[in-house]
Write a protein that binds this DNA or RNA. Structure first.
Length: 906
RNA sequence: GCAGGGGUAGCGAAGCGGUCAAACGCGUAAGGCUUAGGACCUUAUGGCUUAGGCCUUCGAGGGUUCGAAUCCCUCCUCCUGCACCA
């Protein structure tokens, strides 16, 4: 018997598929089209199992649709817009050891790395090439002719320009200023992916209140301007370095040196910066601009000079740090009593309690701060010591507090990071206020409404994702669409700006439809009018060349997009942008139709990702286990939950494949004998076709392999085990096995089908099997269940009695009992009311037994003749299993029930 | 803070008002096969039980129902995303 040799089989069919160009999709008016995409990939490293998961899921659907007779287009592009590649290139250029090592580990040599350092696009092209190989290896059925690179392809840049001019014409573009996390060394914004530390952190807006001290201003930064009436003092850190900053309006600020360095990124007001001896103002008196109160400047070593201004207002009764240190200084120096200005009813000693609870070390005070802020914010009210703010709930006071501060000309704002952020280059990130930033107005109410309406109609799997997407759109704010570093297409009307990567990739799927044709069109022929004509149907056909008309034909045929497959983390950004931009630009009939959202793979509960180092590259896994085995990963989950993937699963898969290959090989040696067990197998397999199809359709692949693979194999095993040996039945079972599993395991199933049936390829239109009505046989399925149950029961009995059976008698209930049983079964389908069921039945011990519990009423149809025949047919099997004499007979005993024969063991 | 999704056997998970320990996969144990290991096959895998039985379970508590993991309420707890970044 031959071993399963995946490499041999896979090479063979991979070659056939490529030679016959089966993955290349051509316009064919006669065939129904199906257009499926996965987002463009950003080629900055090798592909791993995590990627394979998403693409295999899409590929399975693509193949499934092909087998349904659809003309399937599954293209794939690359994305080379944006920061990470440029950042990596820069790091390589600077000789960053870590970066160089990372590239080497992924197969780049010194020559390559030199090229990457010179041009980040080279890096993308290098990895892009490995992707094509890896995908081909694992059998992702992509039409590579339509591949293109965003936004590196010149023609595509034209397309993005058209997109943005169109959005602007429609009024969806606006301009304003915007705070971003920034690396001052690489001079670029720091997205999550560019950070070595501080993922998920964002800019936080602080209010600066200007306290006067002599000729100087102390700018105190706070998140709670509403506590300004409770200020007891100003904190500075006597160990910190401070500057005197002269502003263009003449104000002279005293703030930390770090602040002076950060300020220019948010305002160009500073004219002169000089050193300042902070100790010279400690214990001097400052003025609260809101109420004119005189307050001392105190030193507090807890004040961080690298955050905000290095000047903090002390509000002891409402801030644990202030409380603790103010008290401490108060022990030796006479200080005014701190004012309590926020009341939380029933929590008079909130701050004392909080410190007691969490402790007075730094960590404890931090915890206490969170706790106090939260409690006061949600339940607090500003008491009568708050001037014009008195009586307001804390929750609603921030805005009016700011207005008040503004009216005293004491207001300023400053952005700070919500926690420490470090760039991959090692530099600490700061906040830059980007002026004149261009936005796409995703906040537009009408656009949101239309988009949400579309989402309700879309075919989204899993169903739960619909609510999330709806919500994401509902909460959408304006999106900064440009940036001033990295790679990308310049904004057509303001060339200083580059269009940002999430914004140049919202409707590019339409570009796939003609990507292979537009390559031949000269750049200057690609005008806005051309795209208006192709994509929106505007303009006159006579104005365009045949080549352009051809492109329009492709677009009209393939668009809209039928299915987009992505991981769930894209819901709140890319998916929302994708849907909304389509709604904004395209005619209604071109809006997207379907989505497939998946979770991610975890290994030991950790998300599989490059940064965690828990991945395997695709070429490794395919070379080690085979492509079909590797694709099993797509069955890791049903919906968008995270799915734990265990490489051990592959061994069970292989065992079963070998079993199937074995019977495939010896198919000719089976007989022509037909028995009840044939009906059993045909009926079950027939039903599996339907079950598997439904699960494939809703992308619940864990369920679909369960049916098409594990259950089906199990049925064939049972069939053989019960003595089935009919050649036609087995041939049918194997054929269905090959077909139902082909989307999942294309190569080995093609081989199996080829061996038993020859002829046409499965990877061809409309090879999906249909159910055969006559094969359905519910009663036979039930009776074989009875056999299984009876075998179990016999085992239990033998175990309990510890007997070695010499004779086993199986007593089938008499026909009358079956009649009553089936009658009750029919009634129980309608009602569970025992009285109602009892009506018209003669009372007997048997009836009483069946009607004891409404939960245990008869619920499957059985048949006397069949039950007797099934057991008779299998008596040899029983004999073999128990090595005992077997009697099958009718029995009048009470214990002989329909579906539960009497068992006697001697 | 805002939003979304969970808590079922050793693990991953199915089940979403009615086949009485719960699909399927993995793991584990025993037996078989084998020179041995691996692989493979069979059986078992909540507890008790000398005749197919009983008891206890689906995060916790309460409710609706003849009947709830499944519906309703309260609580505990875990995970994920939050944008200028692919």
């Amino acid at each position: 018997m031959p071993r399963y040799e995946p490499e041999k089989i896979e090479n063979k069919w991979r070659k056939v598929y490529n030679e016959k160009k089966l993955y290349e999709a051509n316009l064919n008016e006669k065939a129904e089209k199906f257009f499926i995409t996965v987002p463009v990939m950003y080629p900055d490293g090798r592909l791993h199992t995590g990627h394979m998961y998403t693409w295999a899921r899409a590929d399975i659907f693509a193949r499934f649709q092909r087998m349904q007779g659809k003309n399937v287009l599954f293209p794939q592009g690359f994305h080379m817009t944006g920061g990470p590649m440029a950042g990596m290139s820069l790091r390589l250029k600077n000789g960053d050891e870590k970066a160089i090592e990372l590239m080497k580990k992924q197969g780049a040599n010194n020559e390559d790395i030199k090229k990457f350092a010179e041009n980040p696009l080279e890096l993308g092209l290098f990895f892009g090439n490995t992707y094509k190989n890896d995908f081909d290896l694992v059998g992702i059925s992509i039409d590579w002719r339509r591949n293109f690179i965003l936004s590196y392809t010149k023609q595509y840049s034209r397309f993005v320009e058209w997109q943005f001019r169109t959005l602007r014409k429609l009024g969806y573009v606006t301009q304003g200023s915007h705070p971003v996390v920034w690396c001052p060394k690489e001079n670029t914004s720091l997205g999550d992916h560019d950070r070595a530390e501080g993922e998920g952190e964002s800019p936080l807006e602080f209010t600066i209140i200007k306290f006067k001290i002599g000729e100087f201003i102390l700018p105190a930064a706070t998140l709670r301007p509403e506590t300004v009436y409770g200020v007891s003092n100003i904190w500075v850190n006597k160990n910190g370095k401070y500057n005197k900053i002269t502003l263009s309006n003449g104000e002279r600020w005293v703030a930390s040196e770090e602040f002076a360095r950060k300020l220019p990124y948010q305002s160009n007001a500073a004219e002169k910066v000089e050193e300042f001896d902070i100790t010279s103002i400690i214990n001097k008196t400052a003025i609260n601009p809101i109420n004119g109160e005189e307050i001392p400047v105190l030193t507090g070593e807890f004040v961080k000079t690298d955050v905000n201004t290095g000047v903090v207002m002390g509000v002891p009764m409402h801030a644990p740090f202030d409380y603790y240190h103010y008290k401490k200084i108060g022990e030796t120096t006479k200080l005014k009593e701190a004012k309590k200005i926020i009341d939380v009813s029933g929590r008079e000693t909130l701050i004392e309690d909080a410190i007691k609870k969490f402790g007075s070390d730094e960590k404890g005070l931090e915890e206490a701060t969170k706790y106090v802020y939260k409690t006061e914010f949600n339940y607090g009210v500003l008491n009568d010591k708050n001037g014009v703010l008195s009586g307001k709930p804390t929750k609603d006071t921030k805005e009016s507090a700011i207005d008040l501060i503004k009216s005293k000309k004491a207001y300023e704002k400053f952005y700070e990071t919500s926690a420490v952020i470090v760039c991959r280059c090692g530099t600490k990130g700061i906040i830059k206020l980007v002026e004149n930033q261009w936005f796409i107005r995703y906040s537009d109410k009408e656009l949101k409404e239309k988009s949400i309406e579309l989402v309700q109609r879309m075919d989204i799997r899993p169903e739960e994702a619909k609510a999330q997407i709806t919500n994401a759109i509902y909460n959408m704010e304006d999106k900064a669409a440009t940036r001033n570093g990295g790679l990308g297409t310049p904004l057509p009307w303001d060339k200083d700006w580059l269009i940002e990567p999430l914004s140049d990739s919202t409707i590019y799927m339409s570009y796939y439809t003609f990507a292979h044709l537009i390559k031949n069109i000269k750049e200057d022929e690609i005008t806005d009018e051309l795209f208006d004509y192709i994509l929106l149907g505007n303009g006159n056909a006579t104005d365009f060349s045949d080549a352009v008309k051809e492109m329009k034909k492709e677009f009209d045929y393939w668009y809209p997009l039928d299915m987009r497959v992505t991981a769930k983390e894209l819901i709140t950004n890319h998916i929302a942008f994708f849907i909304m931009t389509h709604v904004a630009i395209f005619n209604k009939e071109k809006w997207p139709k379907g989505l497939g959202i998946n979770g991610w793979i975890t290994v030991n509960k950790q998300k599989m990702s490059k940064s965690k180092g828990n991945t395997m590259t695709i070429d490794y896994i395919v070379n080690t286990y085979g492509a079909d085995s590797a694709r099993l990963v797509a069955s890791a989950s049903n919906g968008m939950d995270d799915a734990e993937w265990d490489i051990q699963n592959i061994s069970g898969f292989k065992q079963k494949i070998e079993f199937i290959l074995d019977i495939t090989e010896i198919l000719a040696s089976f007989s022509n004998e037909r028995k009840l067990v044939d009906e059993f197998l045909l009926s079950n397999i027939n039903r599996l076709i339907d079950s598997a199809e439904k699960e494939y359709y809703s992308m619940k692949y864990k369920n679909s392999v369960n049916y098409s693979f594990f259950k089906l194999v199990d049925f064939i095993k049972q069939y053989i085990n019960y003595g089935g040996n009919n050649k036609d039945t087995i041939k049918y079972a194997l054929t269905i096995f090959a077909k139902l599993n082909h989307p999942f395991f294309p190569f080995v199933t093609e081989e199996i089908n080829n061996v038993i049936n020859g002829g046409e390829l499965l990877e061809k239109h409309a090879s999906w099997p249909k159910m055969i009505k006559g094969y359905d046989n519910e009663v036979i399925e039930n009776e074989f269940d009875v056999v299984k149950q009876t075998l179990d029961d016999i085992n239990t009995l033998i175990k309990i009695t510890k007997k070695t059976p010499e004779e086993i008698t199986i007593g089938i209930a008499e026909k009358e009992k079956f009649d009553i049983y089936n009658k009750i079964k029919e009634k129980a389908d309608i009602t569970r009311d025992l009285k109602e069921i009892r009506q018209g039945l003669q009372t007997s011990d048997f009836v009483n037994k069946l009607l004891k519990n409404p939960k245990r009423l008869p619920d499957r149809k059985l048949d006397y003749e069949k039950e007797l025949r099934v057991f008779t047919e299998l008596s040899d099997k029983f004999k073999e299993v128990y090595n005992a004499k077997i009697h099958i007979e009718e029995s009048k005993e009470d214990k002989a029930m329909p579906g539960k024969p009497l068992i006697l063991i001697k």
